[in-house]
Write a protein that binds this DNA or RNA. Sequence first.
DNA 1: CTGCCCATGTAAATCGTTACATGATTAC
DNA 2: GTAATCATGTAACGATTTACATGGGCAG
Lengths: 214, 214
Amino acid sequence: MSLRYAILGFLSTTPATGYEIKREFQIAVGWSWEALPSQIYPELREMEHLGWIRGKLCLADRLNKRTYHLTALGERELQKWVEAENDYPPVRDAERIRLIFLDKSSPAAVRRHFEHHRRHFEKQLAVWQSQRDATNKGTHPRLVKRLASRDESEHEFIIGLKQLAFEGNVRRAQLEIQWAENALAWLDQLQAKPKRKQAVARPSTRAVGRRGRK
Amino acid sequence: MSLRYAILGFLSTTPATGYEIKREFQIAVGWSWEALPSQIYPELREMEHLGWIRGKLCLADRLNKRTYHLTALGERELQKWVEAENDYPPVRDAERIRLIFLDKSSPAAVRRHFEHHRRHFEKQLAVWQSQRDATNKGTHPRLVKRLASRDESEHEFIIGLKQLAFEGNVRRAQLEIQWAENALAWLDQLQAKPKRKQAVARPSTRAVGRRGRK
DNA sequence: CTGCCCATGTAAATCGTTACATGATTAC
DNA sequence: GTAATCATGTAACGATTTACATGGGCAG
C-alpha cells in the first residue's frame, strides 16, 4: 500500500500527470519507490475514486492527458501516513543467499559475484550523490518547487530532512562498495598464497572500515 | 523465485522437514530470507515434483513428518543459481518516503521516526552480531554442520564467505544506527536554538562517519 | 513516412500475506 | 484436561511483474 502514499507525496509537491509520475518512478534509483505504469495508472484512478486526488483533463494539449492534484482529504491522509510508525519489510536478500552457498564454486565465480555487487552499487552511488549534491547546493528541482510554497522559516527543516535522506542513501551505497572491495582483497590474498596452513587469511573485521577507494 | 533456492540452499547443508525450514525462515532476521509456512510447504511439494528434492515420511515419529533431502539434480540447480548473476531488487523504501514528506510535521514526530529506526536496527544488529560472533568462534551450528561434510582444505574458504556475509549485515545495521543518531543530534541542535538565522545547523555530512556510539 | 517520445491503459501470471483449518504430541 | 508446540496445509486477497495494446504528436 506504500505506492499509494509515494504517489501522494509526489503530488503534494506539485500536480502531475500519470506519465510524469511514471518517469520518476521508473528511473531505477533516485526516487525511493519504483513502480511501473501498469501499477501507477490504476492507482491514480483508485485514489481519485477515494477523493484523495482529482484529475483534470488538459484539452489544451489535445492529448488524453490528465493532471492530478491533491484534495484536502488527500493531504490529511498523506500526513497521517507519514507520521505513522514505519513498517520495515522482511529481510529478503538473494545476494547473501548466493554468497553463503557459493562455497562449492571457484574463486573466479565468487570474484564475479563481488565485482557485480560493486558495479551495482557504484551505479546507485552516482545517482544518490548527484541528488545529495543538488540538495546541498539548493538546485534540486523538486526541492526548489517544494520550498516555493512554504514559509522561509520552514526551509531549514525541509532541506535538512532531504539532506538526511539522500546522505543516508549515499552512505549505504558506499558501505556496499567498501564491503565488496574488502571481499575482493580477501580473494586476492587467498589466491596469492594458495596452500599455506600457517597464517590463515580471514576476511578481516577491521579492514572493512578503512577507506581504500581508488 | 528466490525462495525456492533459499530452501534448496538450506537443505544442501542438511536434510530437514518443512517445519524446521519454517522455523529458520520465520525468525525475523538471522537467515537472509523470510517466508511463511503457507509459502514453504507448497514450494517443497513443487520442488519434489520437479525432482530437485525428495521427501521421506518418518514413520518412527508416527507424525505426519516429511524429511526432505537434495537430489543430484537439485544440487546442480542450486549450483547454477548461486553462480548466476544476482538480480538486485528495485529500490522500495517507505522509510525514506516518510522522512521526505515529514516536513509538515512537528520535530517531535520526526524524532519518533528516527528513534523507531534506531530501535529497529538495534534489534537486527543483535541478531547479526550473534551470528557473526558464532561464525568467528566456530560455534555456528549450521556452519559446523556444513564443514563436517567437506574436506579440511576447503574450510577456510567456506568460513570466509560466511564471515563476509554476516560482517556485511552487521555493518549495514551499524550504519543505520549511526545515521539515526546523527539525525537525532541534528534535531537536538535545531530545538536548542529555535529561531537563529545565523550559523544554521545542517545535518552534517561529516558527523555521520564518526563513531559516537554509547 | 518512419521512428521516437508522449500518454494511457488491460490481462494474465507470479509472489507474498492474511486468515483459517486440522490433528498429533508433550509438558504441567 | 488443557495449553503449548509440532506438523502440515488451503483459500482468498493484495502487490508486483510481464506482456500486450493503442493512438496522437513531432522531428528527420
